[in-house]
Simulated assay, not measured.
Amino acid sequence: MKRILVPTDFSAHAENALKVAAQVAKKNNSEIILLHMLELPHQMNDAITSGASIPETMLFMKKANETLDEISNRNYLDGIEITEIVKMDKPIHGITQVSKEYEIDLIVMGSHGASGIEELLIGSNTEKVVRNSEIPVLVIKKENPDFSASEIVFASDLSEEAYLPFEKLLKFAKLFDSKLHLVTICTPNSFKPTHEIEKITKSFISKFDFSNLETHIYNDTNIENGIINFSNSINADVISMCTHGRTGFAHFFNGSISEGLVNHAIKPVLTFKV
């Protein structure tokens, strides 16, 4: 894991993400790319187009760079190579562009947690990053001074669509010496007999060379509750899921996961694109 991208809006939630990124970086000797997207008011953009407000624009840029400098010198980042970027662009486009340019391995983003996915760092733009990013995205809900990924839950229907995301998860798990918990959530609306789930699970795990895992079947009223309650029951460190570029989240969520999962899951969420 050579480079970790941390987009920041200078909020406390963004700093929570940066602190976790710092822990990951120290463990893997990674570089952190600290990115601030500078979105100017529409009237300022119009003025820039006309060439009338370049001094004001430079002032915004100068202030953003000064803030990044101050953040980069915080004690918890000691010993980590930091690259600071201030970019004038729409967040989703800028984050995607920087991710490709710097060959980012992991994006770490902050979230307001229980306030919902629309309240993620830089608003609904983060939901777009989670949905569309080809790179794994780790969403941090709260301050986590001792981040661990020792126990990771991977909730899925274990279809062929999940093969590639699971392969990416295995690389992450090996870095952290993680134990994986593959869980299939059974609900009244998505019920399968145990013997059928066990057959699907056995077929799925046979495709991969990874032994530090357990398989589970968990019954609950809905998928959201099942993932959260199961994760809490084993005291998982991270919840992992697939995302789908067209519709948002994994196929087994019938096209889109309930926003309630992000609203209510306090644990870090790690996403991999299908």
Results as ranks from 00 to 15, higher is better:
P7F: 04
P7T: 01
T8S: 07
F10A: 05
A12H: 05
A14R: 05
A14E: 07
L18K: 09
K26P: 01
L34I: 06
L38P: 11
E39I: 12
P41Q: 11
H42Y: 14
N45F: 07
I48G: 02
I54Y: 11
L59Q: 13
L59R: 11
M61P: 00
M61N: 10
K63M: 09
N65W: 08
N65V: 00
T67W: 00
T67E: 13
S72D: 05
R74Y: 01
D78Y: 03
G79F: 08
E81M: 10
E84N: 15
M88C: 06
K90T: 14
P91H: 09
I92C: 00
I95R: 09
S99F: 04
I104R: 05
I104M: 08
V108I: 15
G110C: 10
G110S: 09
G110H: 09
S115V: 00
E119S: 12
E119P: 00
E119R: 15
T126S: 13
V129Q: 02
V129T: 06
P136A: 08
P136D: 05
I140E: 13
K142E: 15
N144P: 00
P145R: 09
D146R: 12
A149M: 13
A149F: 01
S150H: 11
V153N: 04
D157L: 06
S159R: 04
E160C: 00
E160F: 01
E161C: 02
E161Q: 10
E161A: 11
A162H: 01
A162W: 02
Y163E: 12
Y163P: 00
P165I: 04
E167G: 06
K168R: 14
K171W: 01
K171A: 11
A173W: 03
K174W: 01
K174P: 00
F176A: 09
F176H: 15
D177V: 04
D177W: 00
D177K: 14
S178W: 11
S178F: 08
H181C: 06
L182M: 13
T187P: 10
P188H: 07
F191I: 04
P193L: 11
H195T: 12
E196F: 05
T201I: 12
K202A: 10
S203C: 00
F204N: 07
I205G: 06
I205Q: 11
F210C: 05
N212S: 13
N212F: 01
E214G: 13
E214H: 09
H216W: 14
I217Y: 08
Y218W: 14
D220F: 01
N222T: 05
I227P: 07
I227C: 05
I234V: 14
A236K: 06
D237S: 07
D237P: 02
V238N: 04
I239C: 09
S240E: 02
T243L: 05
T243G: 03
H244Q: 12
G245N: 08
R246W: 04
R246D: 12
T247H: 10
G248N: 08
F249C: 06
A250P: 08
A250I: 04
F252N: 12
F253E: 03
F253P: 02
S258E: 10
E259V: 04
E259K: 15
E259H: 13
G260K: 15
V262D: 01
V262A: 15
K267W: 02
K267T: 06
L270A: 04
K273V: 10
K273H: 10
